[in-house]
């Protein structure tokens, strides 16, 4: 499995797609932060919140994360890298796990600009605001700016950033079975985007229905896991990790069940 992971990391390192996605998230993270700052300062109209959300991590990762799955998993069916791995003796389970690990590494990489920009922005002590649409790193930006960001918070912020990346990776793990079954990026990207939109709508439903909330919080889309910030308690963090990891395992198990005896065209 290590060979496959190493090979995929080599491919990712050589890939133009990951560089483009990283550039997009870097620009988006900067744009999100600048807009949040200008909104807080009142220098731009509140109507720009929609634009600000467009650049936010939750929105960008729901599109670019699925693109990443398209490029690195579906693309490997086109390039027959998966065929070669199997015909040279790798088990299908190994292929799935290695692809998922590298996919999650890729998600972490493209989310890195959000973590770095948010960390720097908080360090400046400036105020940021994006209103009610704040989720993920944007939420950290707007929540923490109400209180002074101290050096002691840095480690906790790094932990929160890591957990948020895990939560996003868990949400995007839905793309793994989609990519292995559908094999077409053109299908994986819109389907996942719809799933992420649906997740947002179900969050609203969960807010008004305690029963549904309990069920929904068993997925990384629910339970306010995307709203973890510096005020999060150890129990929140632990639960976010637990739910995310179990959800990833379930997604990989579904992928294995579907791919175990599948024809590889």
């Amino acid at each position: 499995m290590l060979n496959l992971i190493q090979a995929d990391l080599f491919k990712m390192h050589k890939s133009m797609a990951i560089k483009i996605l990283f550039s997009i998230t870097t620009i988006s993270a900067l744009a999100m932060t600048v807009l949040a700052y200008l909104l807080e300062q009142g220098q731009i109209d509140a109507g720009m919140i929609g634009i600000g959300f467009m650049f936010s991590d939750v929105n960008m990762v729901s599109i670019l994360g699925a693109v990443l799955a398209g490029v690195f998993i579906c693309g490997d069916f086109d390039n027959k890298t998966i065929h070669d791995a199997i015909s040279s003796g790798s088990s299908r389970g190994t292929v799935i796990v290695s692809k998922a690990i590298v996919f999650f590494c890729g998600i972490g990489f493209i989310l890195l600009p959000y973590a770095i920009v948010t960390g720097i922005a908080l360090w400046t002590g400036f105020g940021f605001n994006m209103g009610a649409v704040s989720v993920g790193f944007l939420n950290n930006l707007t929540q923490a700016s109400t209180a002074a960001f101290q050096a002691s918070n840095l480690l906790k912020f790094l932990l929160i950033a890591l957990i948020l990346i895990i939560v996003y990776a868990s949400q995007l793990s839905v793309c793994v079975p989609l990519a292995f079954i559908l094999k077409k990026p053109v299908l994986v990207v819109p389907i996942y985007y719809v799933i992420s939109l649906l997740g947002g709508q179900l969050s609203l439903l969960a807010a008004s229905s305690p029963g549904f909330n309990r069920i929904f919080s068993l997925t990384p889309f629910g339970g306010s896991y995307s709203f973890l910030d510096l005020n999060a308690q150890a129990a929140d963090i632990f639960k976010a990790i637990l739910v995310s990891v179990i959800f990833i395992i379930i997604m990989l198990a579904i992928t294995y069940a579907a791919f175990r005896k599948a024809e590889i065209k």
Partner: peptide
């Protein structure tokens, strides 16, 4: 199957890589 080499239907290549990098990718993989 680790003792097997195969090229079935058409060659599986990563289009944005050179011949050397393609070979390197598969060498690492194996």
């Amino acid at each position: 199957r680790k003792r097997l080499g195969a090229m079935i239907e058409y060659p599986g290549l990563t289009p944005n890589m050179s011949a050397g990098d393609n070979l390197k990718l598969h060498r690492i993989m194996r």
